[in-house]
């Protein structure tokens, strides 16, 4: 087990600097892309693409060429194929994904089986090894990440509208079909360049988990993108740190930390705390009544129990019914909170 000092000493080495930059870049692009994947409900489409990348990697190793080339080819092929099924509604998404998903896994295992000798690269692709990113791959990663960020920056509002309502986006003159395919290709690229660092099995977590954590915190898209990128980056940096000092596989450490961030976000989520129905107009005084208070109107049939008049009728909270002294509250005044 290495100490913290060792970690900072190692940072002066090129391979470590590269690993750190790689993890930050993967954290940011995974987080940003993830927001749109999550909001569009494409989580499993992405999963299928992730597994195609594994098959691509295995083929690259079998043929003895740079796996990144075959990974990207397979990724784009899977993205377009999955996008086509999704668009034409040839069959249910889940059926298509189930077939594609297992087929790519089978291909990957087939390619590995065809190899004359067992290569350690296979393990590194399956489980990821952020410390061994080659210089060539590192520059490809930086270049593609830059391109992906520019793509998202330019098309953010169009993608946002498509996640909200694709039909309305199309009427508004947004080229929905084209953007759909482009977006899937970008998802594929994001997965492909993260593959080496995180590993084929876990790579998709870098897209889903930070975005799902960010989703718990906000109702604004910009804030969600920022938080998602932040969570992704933090997970990647801390994952790298712990994998170094505890000598653990980098991918699984990063994903574990991302999952912890998600669990904390989920538990502390203000959205969950606000799960009570939002008070609506009171039928009697036509002003908003805060959750705890209630109506004094004689005509109201349940006026001695705190309640609110919602769109779907009268809302009474279970805790108010069970409280014994609720009748004493009768004389309390309304307070009309402005939201």
């Amino acid at each position: 087990m290495a100490s913290i000092v060792d970690f900072f000493n190692a940072l002066s080495q090129t391979y470590m600097q590269r690993a750190l930059i790689t993890s930050v870049v993967i954290g940011i692009i995974g987080g940003v892309i993830g927001v749109f994947v999550l909001l569009r409900g494409m989580v499993f489409l992405g999963e299928a693409i992730a597994h195609s990348a594994f098959a691509g990697a295995a083929l690259g190793l079998l043929l003895g060429i740079n796996p990144l080339i075959t990974i990207i080819l397979f990724g784009i092929f899977a993205a377009v194929g999955v996008g086509y099924v999704n668009e034409k509604k040839v069959m249910k998404d889940e059926v298509a994904i189930g077939i594609v998903f297992t087929f790519f896994m089978a291909l990957a295992i087939l390619f590995i089986g065809l190899m004359k000798e067992y290569s350690t690269d296979v393990t590194s692709i399956l489980f990821g090894d952020i410390m061994t990113v080659s210089e060539e791959n590192f520059f490809i990663l930086i270049f593609l990440a830059g391109a992906i960020m520019i793509f998202i920056y330019m098309l953010k509002k169009e993608l946002y509208m498509m996640t909200f309502n694709a039909e309305m986006a199309e009427i508004a003159g947004i080229p929905v079909r084209l953007l759909n395919y482009l977006f899937l290709v970008v998802v594929a690229l994001t997965i492909d360049i993260s593959l080496k660092a995180i590993g084929a099995i876990l790579v998709f977590a870098m897209i889903v988990t930070p975005a799902a954590a960010a989703y718990q915190w906000t109702f604004r898209i910009n804030k969600m993108i920022f938080l998602s990128a932040l969570f992704g980056t933090l997970s990647a940096i801390f994952g790298l740190f712990f994998s170094f000092i505890l000598d653990l596989p980098s991918g699984s450490t990063i994903v574990t930390i991302a999952t912890i961030v998600f669990v904390i976000s989920f538990v502390l989520s203000p959205k969950r705390r606000k799960a009570a129905p939002v008070p609506l107009e009171c039928a009697y005084c036509s002003k908003t009544i805060a959750g705890e208070e209630y109506c004094l109107d004689e005509a109201c049939l349940i006026h001695n129990v705190p309640h609110i008049h919602g769109e779907k009728g009268v809302i009474i909270y279970a805790k108010d019914v069970s409280s014994k002294n609720h009748t004493k509250k009768k004389e309390r005044k309304h307070s009309h909170k402005v939201r």
Partner: peptide
């Protein structure tokens, strides 16, 4: 229920097509 959009964000989407790709409102 938790879709990250405020009412004004949704109404602003009505302007997106007119604003054009890559341009802010």
């Amino acid at each position: 229920r938790n879709f990250p959009a405020l009412v004004k964000d949704v109404v602003e989407m009505g302007r997106y097509g007119k604003a054009g790709i890559g341009k802010a409102l």
